[in-house]
Design a protein around this nucleic acid. Structure first.
Length: 268
DNA sequence: ATGCCGGCAGTATGCCGA
């Protein structure tokens, strides 16, 4: 069984590429982030024609997450319990479309789009940290309830957990950039302390192993990227994982997303 | 051994991304 996660940076702009990738990648489940669509302009036919069921959660042109599966799609859940809200200025705070779950062939799959943070002193940063802390608390409860649960927390984590996960740590420090700060890394590492396993790092260690490359500054051809997309697996699921790869071919060419798909193999 | 920012809303340009 293959499970993929991919921040597509607009499902409408990327519909042809997503369809082509589904048809060649042979994945059973695809967790998608940043669909940038509402249900009424989501390209359902892309998945139907390819033989996948799909569940989508999108509230506006921002965020948006989905799960496509050809091995069942049960108990779809939008948002996690107590998922923190965000509202800018006078706008009403809402639970954004950043988390959706479904059970696919016995695996509880979460497609997660962690808040960006925007800046070290931006109000979006405490939102990001609280969002991760709350998710981790509940994920820990899920493991307590069933230590044998097969759960994957897949998505765009917007955290580079180690210095080797960015092409030049000094550049990030000099520019006071997000994704590499201690609080962000602590919020990510807390999931590992809870018991989840970073199967991408285990199977695909760095340095120089990235999942995201900025569109600007020739970042991709210069191999200047970031490792920020992960699939964190519960212990029972991690024990069955036999591999994890980043499909950097998909980052090439005109019309690519700025993220590459991350695919894990499970002996199921 | 890849190519010099992209998508969306709404119709000019600001927001958002990381």
């Amino acid at each position: 069984m293959k499970i993929a996660t991919w921040n597509v940076n607009s499902i409408r702009a990327r519909a042809d590429r997503v369809e082509a990738w589904l048809n060649k990648s042979d994945v059973d489940v695809l967790a998608i982030q940043e669909t940038k669509a509402k249900d009424d302009n989501f390209p359902w036919e892309v998945f139907e024609f390819s033989g996948y069921e799909v569940a989508h959660f999108g509230l506006s042109q921002w965020n948006g997450v989905a799960i496509a599966s050809r091995v069942g799609l049960e108990d779809v859940q939008r948002t996690f319990p107590e998922q923190p809200t965000f509202g800018k200025g006078n706008q009403e705070a809402v639970q954004e479309a950043r988390a959706i779950a479904a059970t696919c062939n016995g695996v509880r799959v979460w497609s997660l789009y962690v808040p960006n943070g925007r800046g070290l002193e931006d109000p979006h940063m405490p939102y990001k940290l609280t969002w991760l802390e709350t998710l981790n608390r509940h994920a820990g409860e899920w493991l307590q309830e069933d230590p044998e649960a097969k759960i994957v927390l897949a998505g765009d984590w917007n955290v580079a957990p180690r210095d080797e996960d960015v092409w030049d740590m000094q550049f990030f420090l000099d520019n006071q950039m997000t994704h590499v700060s201690e609080p962000e890394r602590a919020a990510f590492n807390a999931f590992l302390e809870t018991g989840f396993v970073d199967v991408l790092r285990e199977n695909n260690p760095g340095p120089g192993v990235y999942t995201y490359w900025d569109y600007t500054q020739l970042r991709f051809p210069k191999k200047e990227g970031m490792k920020i997309d992960f699939q964190l697996c519960s212990p029972a699921l991690a024990a069955q994982v036999t591999g994890a790869v980043i499909d950097r071919e998909e980052r090439k060419g005109k019309g690519a997303s700025d993220h590459a798909p991350v695919v894990i193999d499970i002996a199921l």
